[in-house]
Every structure is written in structure tokens, then in C-alpha cells.
């Protein structure tokens, strides 16, 4: 019994494992997002011009002033500094986007995973609720709600969060369903793991990857939605947002023609941020897309 062909064999030298790379594009996006997050967090502390002060300059004639050394992004009709206002706008836009998707994940993600795992009546009820939520045209619902309530940072975030519950929940449920019947879950049950442990240790690590990429994409959607709402004058009442700035800059075709910078810079920031979120989300998904088979 000294030699045992079955157990003494098996291992050959480890094959060279090639690390997947996220790529330069991803890191550029992350840098941009980091910069935006920094700006959003610390705007009041930055040496910026006041976003509300009117920098009237009689020598330059009537505002709006075009971009110059003094006003990098130019000024609006009331001679306010577009650069300072754009950076201040990041604050509300990003906070709303982040808060909305967090709320969506907390509620939608939890409900989705639980209904996908336990199935049965829980699943039937939650799926019905999701379908009802998805059946409302979300923009109309958002407009309705925001026109009825007091529009603060919190309420706007909650409204957008409410809207993201159903899509997030559906994806979480689908991703969970895909893994709940896999044999490794069965294997966990037969070694005595509790449902709670199975959800946390076996299901979540698998569901987290598609979800994290969705979180980035979802945040992009929320940022755009907030922009849309404020463009309609239905976002946070007191405060500067990108949507509000864009709306101001495109009040009339005349403003757009004569002072395009007022709308252009907020649009550019919004565009770059949303692009970064989408691109990063996509890369994250690819990166974690492990091969499950070597056969």
C-alpha cells in the first residue's frame, strides 16, 4: 500500500496564470470619478469664487462674459462664475446619484436576493411589486412625485432611489436564481450551512460582481435623471445642480447661440462623469467575469 497511483499523481506544475488587466481607460475614468468625488465632498473648502456672487465688470460690458483668465468657464447672465457654479453643482448631482443608487441597492438588492433564493410566495409577491413599479413610466412618476413634495436633497434622493428599486431588484433576483440551484449551494446545505450563511458566503460573492457593475451604471442613470429633473425645475430647490445650470444656459436659443459656455461646461462635466461611470462599470464586469471551466 506504499504506492498509491490515484493520490500520488494529479498535480503538475502550476500553469502560468495571466492576470487580466483593467486597462488605462479604466484608470482614467476612476481618476476622473475620484476628482469629482473630491470636489463634491470639499467644494466649500476649495479656493473658489463664490457661486452666487455677481462679478459685474462694467469695463467688459454686459454679462454674460465669455471664458477668460478671470472666469475660466465664463460667466452667466447675472455675471456669476460658471466654473465655481459647475464645481458646486457636482455636489448635489453626485450626492443624489450616489444616495439614490444606495437606497435602491439596500432595498431592491436585499429583496431581490431573498426572493431569488427562497422563491415561493416571497418571490411571487416581490416580483409583482417590481412589475408594478416598472410599469410606471419612471420619468413621469418622478415628475409627479417631485412636483408634490418639498424638494430637498433627501427627498429627491429618495424618489430616485425608489425608482431604482425595481430594476436593481430584478437583476439581483435573476442573478441569485442563476446560482441558487447550483450544486455548490446544495453542497453547502448538506454540510449544514444555514440559509443566512449560504446567502452571505455562497450567493453574495457571485451576485456582487454583476451588481457592482450595475451600481456604477445605475449611478450614471440617476445622475442623468437628476439632471433631467432639475432641467425641468423639479430638483433640489435651493442649490446649484448641473441640470439647473444647463437649463439656465439653454433657456432660449439666443442664450445658446450667444453664450454657449454657460450650458457647455456643465454638460461636459455631466457627460464625462456619466461616461466614466458607464465605462468603469463595463470594465469591472469584464474583469471579474471568471472562466468557470478549464475544460
Amino acid at each position: 500500500m506504499s504506492t498509491n497511483p490515484a493520490t500520488s499523481t494529479a498535480i503538475t506544475p502550476d500553469e502560468t496564470i495571466v492576470k487580466k488587466k483593467l486597462g488605462v481607460g479604466f484608470w482614467l475614468c476612476v481618476t476622473w470619478l475620484g476628482l469629482m468625488a473630491f470636489i463634491a465632498l470639499f467644494t466649500p473648502l476649495l479656493p473658489l469664487k463664490s457661486p452666487t456672487q455677481n462679478f459685474l465688470d462694467p469695463a467688459n460690458g454686459r454679462p454674460p462674459y465669455s471664458p477668460s483668465w478671470k472666469h475660466w468657464f465664463g460667466s452667466d447672465k447675472d455675471a456669476r462664475d460658471v466654473f465655481a457654479r459647475t464645481l458646486h453643482g457636482a455636489r448635489i448631482s453626485l450626492t443624489v446619484g450616489f444616495a439614490a443608487i444606495t437606497a435602491g441597492f439596500l432595498v431592491g438588492g436585499t429583496v431581490g436576493v431573498i426572493s431569488g433564493y427562497f422563491k415561493g410566495w416571497i418571490d411571487r409577491i416581490s416580483s409583482f411589486v417590481f412589475i408594478v413599479l416598472l410599469s410606471f413610466p419612471s420619468l413621469v412618476l418622478a415628475i409627479l412625485l417631485t412636483s408634490l413634495i418639498e424638494r430637498s436633497l433627501l427627498t429627491i434622493s429618495l424618489v430616485l432611489g425608489l425608482l431604482s428599486i425595481a430594476p436593481v431588484g430584478r437583476l439581483a433576483r435573476a442573478a441569485t436564481l442563476q446560482f441558487a440551484d447550483r450544486e455548490f449551494v446544495l453542497a453547502a446545505r448538506q454540510i449544514g450551512a444555514t440559509n443566512r450563511r449560504i446567502i452571505i458566503k455562497e450567493i453574495l460573492p457571485n451576485v456582487a460582481i454583476p451588481m457592482s457593475s450595475l451600481a456604477l451604471l445605475g449611478m450614471a442613470v440617476a445622475v442623468v435623471a437628476e439632471g433631467g429633473l432639475s432641467f425641468l425645475g423639479l430638483s433640489v430647490e435651493k442649490g446649484i445642480t448641473w441640470g439647473g445650470l444647463i437649463q439656465l444656459g439653454s433657456e432660449s436659443s439666443k442664450t445658446l447661440e450667444e453664450a454657449p459656455w454657460i450650458a457647455f461646461f456643465p454638460i461636459l462635466m455631466l457627460f464625462l462623469t456619466v461616461l466614466s461611470l458607464n465605462f468603469a462599470g463595463d470594465r469591472v464586469r469584464n474583469y471579474f467575469d471568471v472562466k468557470e471551466t478549464t475544460l
Binding site: P5, A6, S8, T9, A10, T12, E15, T16
Partner: peptide, 12 residues
């Protein structure tokens, strides 16, 4: 009877 090990790495 078994064949020990695994098939060769076709990259190297």
C-alpha cells in the same frame, strides 16, 4: 489502470 497527471499544456 490510470494515466497519471494531466494532458500537456498546449501553450508550452
Amino acid at each position: 489502470a490510470t494515466i497519471p497527471g494531466r494532458p500537456p499544456d498546449i501553450v508550452h
